[in-house]
Design a protein around this nucleic acid. Structure first.
Lengths: 216, 216
DNA sequence: ACCTGAACACCGTTCAAGT
DNA sequence: ACCTGAACACCGTTCAAGT
C-alpha cells in the first residue's frame, strides 16, 4: 500500500533516525569536516583520505555518500552558493524601496563572503568542478544568487533610475565588478591590511564609480 | 685566461650549444611541455611526472631546474604575466592620444587572454601559487601589467577626461571589472557561444557602462 | 544498508649513485 | 654539472569481504 519509491535518489531529511550503524549522518559530517580541511589546507591540498580520517571512518567510506571527490567538493560549493543567495536576498529586504542602496550593499556582501571564506570562494568560482556536477548545482542555487542580483536591478528599472533598459547588461556589469574584486581578495592578490584597499569602502567606491561613471 | 664563472645561475641563451649532456636546455623545454600539459589537463591535474615523461627524462630531473612543482608553475605564470604586460603596453602605442580607447581596448585584451588561455589565467590568478614564489614574480612582471593600466589612466588624467583624480581608484575600478569578466570566462561560468555574452562586445559594453555610469 | 581494508595506479620529493 | 632510479609517504578509486 505504501509507495516507497517516491523519493528515489534523495536522502531522508528528518534528523530523528539515529539507528544508522556507525555515524548517524556521515554525509553531513563529512561535508562539515571537508569545509574545515578546505579552510585549513586550501582547494588544491584537500584530500578525501584526510577528511575520512578526521571523521573516524575508513578512506573508502565517503564513497558510499559521494560518487567521487568532485561531487563532494561540488556539494561544498553548493553550500557556498546557498549562503550567497540567502545573503543577497536579505539585502533586498534590508533596504526596501532603495534599489541603489540594494545594489551597492549586494556588492559589499559579495566581497565580504570572499574575504570571510576565500578558499570556499576559490572553490565556487575557481573552475575546478566538473561539468556534470556544475549543472546540478547551477540549476538549484547558482542561478538563485544571480536571480537575486537581477531582482535588485529590476527594482531599479521599476524605479526608473537606470539609463540602460536591459536588466541583463546592468546585472552583468555589476556582477563582474564585484566578482573581480572578490576574486582578487580571495586569491590574495589584494592586500586587506593596506589603507588603500579596505574591502567595504573599496567595494562601495567601485560601485559608485560604476553608478555615476568615470568620465566628466 | 678565460673566466667561466661570469654567468652563474643563468643558462646560456644562444642556441648554438648542443654539448650539454642530454637535452640542450631542459629548463625551457620543461616549461614548454608544462604549458602543453596545463592546457590539456588543467591546473589541478598537471603533474611533474607527466611533464618529465613527455620531455623524455626521469621524474627526478626537473628538480635540477626547479626547486619544486610550485616554482615551475610560478615560472609558467610569469610567462603569462609577461604576455599580458606586453599586450597592455602595446595597446597604449596602438591608440596614441586616445586614453579612453586605450582603456576600453586594454579591457578587451585582458579578457581575450583569459579566453585564449583559460588554464593559464586560472594559474595566474587562481591563488594556487605559494607566497615565496609570488613575491619574486610580482616584482618583475605582475606589477608591470598593472603599471601599464596605471599609465593608461594617467594618460586620461592628463587629458582631463576623468571626474575622479585618484589614478589608483580609477585603475582599480577598471581592473576589477575586466578581471571579473576574465575570471568568469576562464572558469567556464559564462557561455562564450551565447549571443548575450560575446566576449569583445561584452567587455566593451561593460567598460562603457563604467565610463558613462549606470544612473540617469 | 553501510563500512572496512587490501589492492592498484598514480602523485611530489629526496637522495645515493651513476656519467 | 646534470641525470637516473629506488625509496618514501602520500593520493583517488575500486571492490571483495565483513557486520
Amino acid at each position: 500500500m505504501v509507495n516507497k519509491k517516491l523519493e528515489k535518489n534523495k536522502k531522508i531529511k528528518s534528523g530523528d533516525n539515529s539507528d544508522v550503524y556507525h555515524h548517524g549522518n556521515l554525509r553531513e559530517e563529512l561535508l562539515d569536516i571537508a569545509l574545515e580541511v578546505l579552510i585549513e589546507k586550501g582547494v588544491s591540498d584537500i584530500s578525501l583520505r584526510e577528511v575520512a580520517k578526521r571523521a573516524g571512518v575508513s578512506h573508502g567510506a565517503p564513497y558510499r555518500h559521494f560518487k567521487d571527490k568532485n561531487i563532494l567538493l561540488g556539494s561544498l560549493a553548493r553550500r557556498g552558493f546557498n549562503q550567497l543567495a540567502t545573503e543577497l536576498s536579505n539585502v533586498i529586504s534590508d533596504y526596501p524601496g532603495d534599489p541603489q542602496k540594494q545594489l551597492v550593499e549586494a556588492g559589499v556582501v559579495y566581497v565580504r563572503l570572499a574575504i570571510a571564506s576565500p578558499e570556499l570562494t576559490q572553490l565556487m568560482f575557481g573552475g575546478r568542478i566538473d561539468g556534470d556536477c556544475w549543472d546540478s548545482i547551477e540549476e538549484d542555487v547558482g542561478e538563485n544568487a544571480f536571480q537575486s542580483l537581477l531582482n535588485i536591478v529590476i527594482n531599479g528599472l521599476n524605479a526608473d533610475i537606470y539609463k540602460n533598459e536591459d536588466s541583463m547588461s546592468i546585472a552583468l556589469a555589476c556582477w563582474t565588478s564585484m566578482h573581480g574584486l572578490a576574486m582578487l581578495y580571495s586569491a590574495g592578490q589584494l592586500d586587506i591590511s593596506s589603507d588603500h584597499f579596505d574591502p567595504d569602502s573599496l567595494s562601495r567606491m567601485i560601485s559608485d564609480m560604476l553608478l555615476y561613471g568615470l568620465l566628466k
